[in-house]
Computed example of a mutant assay.
Amino acid sequence: MSALGELRRVKGQPASKQRKQNKAAFLFLLPWFIGLALITVGPMVASLALSFTRYNLLSPPRFNGIQNYIRMFEDERLHKALAVTFQYVFISVPLQLGLALLLAIVLDRGLRGLSLYRSAFYLPSLLGASVAIAILWRQLFGVDGLVNVVLGWFGIEGQGWISNPETALGTLMILNVWTFGAPMVIFLAGLRQIPVMYYEAAAVDGANRRQQFRHITLPMLTPIIFFNLILQLIGAFQSFTQAFVVSGGTGGPVDSTLFYTLYLYQQGFANLNMGYASAMAWLLLVIVAAFTALNFWASKYWVFYDDQD
């Protein structure tokens, strides 16, 4: 056999094996692709089509062009829902990430029972979006709730925090900040990846802990901060359960807890304006995508990676 023939034979075996592996991988991934098409892509396309219709779930949808999108400019409750949602996102997310980073730094100092603390702090992230916690939160901040009982010990007269328009949204922000566990664990993992030699070299140069945090910890953690920021930002825009349970599904008092997703739910399932609700869902998608893209664009000015010069 010639050398060329032998080379072709040797090359042909790995190629055939690779094709078999590709087929096996495709078969294993096929259920996921089917689920993606039926559960994600299909409903998204359907909602986009419904956003151009007038549909009340009881009769066939009727095409009405871009009337649903034009209606958004005149809908004052939608504008109120956007304002409440923006306020909730832009205040609670930075506070949540700040608390998560602070506790991650404390835990990174080698406390005894670290795994126990980590599990305890992570637990609110698993339960924070549940109906049970939302009901508990409503009880805590009620007129006879635990918050007012504690304030009474110090001679401070409490109030109905949930029923007061000036404080109702704040209670939901506190709930979101309380679910700091997931970003905290990610921050802790990032802190463990920073080489110790950087801190040792800085200490030799006379840098104190504050300077080390500013010039080493924060720059090295910027990719993790960026990752957590994107995740929590998207999650905060989609918050629904807390506002629904605490306000009884009304967004009250005086629409002070009317999250965008809650108003979308009211339009689609309470008022049976499914066409308008579909258009609202696509507006939310555009808003989230815009803020995500803005963060990716801005990241080149403050996110630093090890391979950068």
Rank of each mutant, 00 (worst) to 15 (best):
M274H: 14
W302K: 00
Q193L: 11
S256Q: 03
M44R: 13
F90S: 08
L146M: 14
D144P: 09
V147N: 06
T257G: 06
S16L: 07
R209W: 11
G35D: 02
E200T: 07
G275R: 09
L116V: 12
L264Q: 13
A202L: 06
Y122P: 06
E74V: 08
W161T: 00
L97K: 08
G110Q: 06
D309S: 09
W32V: 08
G251T: 04
L191Q: 01
N176M: 00
I135L: 11
F33R: 01
L151C: 15
Y199L: 00
K300C: 12
G160C: 01
L231T: 10
V45F: 13
L175T: 08
Y117F: 06
L27I: 14
M72F: 07
G42F: 15
L102D: 03
P219E: 00
W178H: 07
G110M: 09
L258A: 04
Q67L: 05
Q266F: 04
R19H: 14
Q139M: 04
T167M: 02
L27C: 15
L48V: 06
K20W: 09
L95F: 15
Q18H: 03
Q238L: 01
A182Y: 11
G235K: 13
Y199A: 00
A202E: 09
G190K: 00
L116T: 12
D205H: 11
A120N: 04
N64S: 15
E200W: 08
A134F: 05
L264S: 07
A290I: 13
A202H: 10
V131D: 08
R62P: 05
A100T: 06
Y265F: 07
I174M: 10
Q87I: 06
G155M: 01
V196G: 04
L136C: 15
A100H: 04
F304M: 02
L48C: 03
I66R: 07
N164M: 04
G248F: 10
W178P: 12
G248L: 08
Y55H: 04
V254C: 04
S256V: 01
S278R: 05
D205I: 09
I194L: 14
M72P: 06
I91R: 02
L126I: 06
F86P: 08
N64I: 10
F304G: 01
W297T: 09
G170L: 07
A37K: 03
G35N: 05
Y260C: 01
I230Q: 07
I34M: 02
Y260Q: 01
M197L: 05
F296T: 02
I287D: 08
F73C: 00
R192Q: 08
F240L: 03
G251L: 06
D307R: 06
G235L: 05
F90R: 08
V254I: 05
R9C: 12
F213I: 01
N295E: 12
F33H: 05
I135P: 11
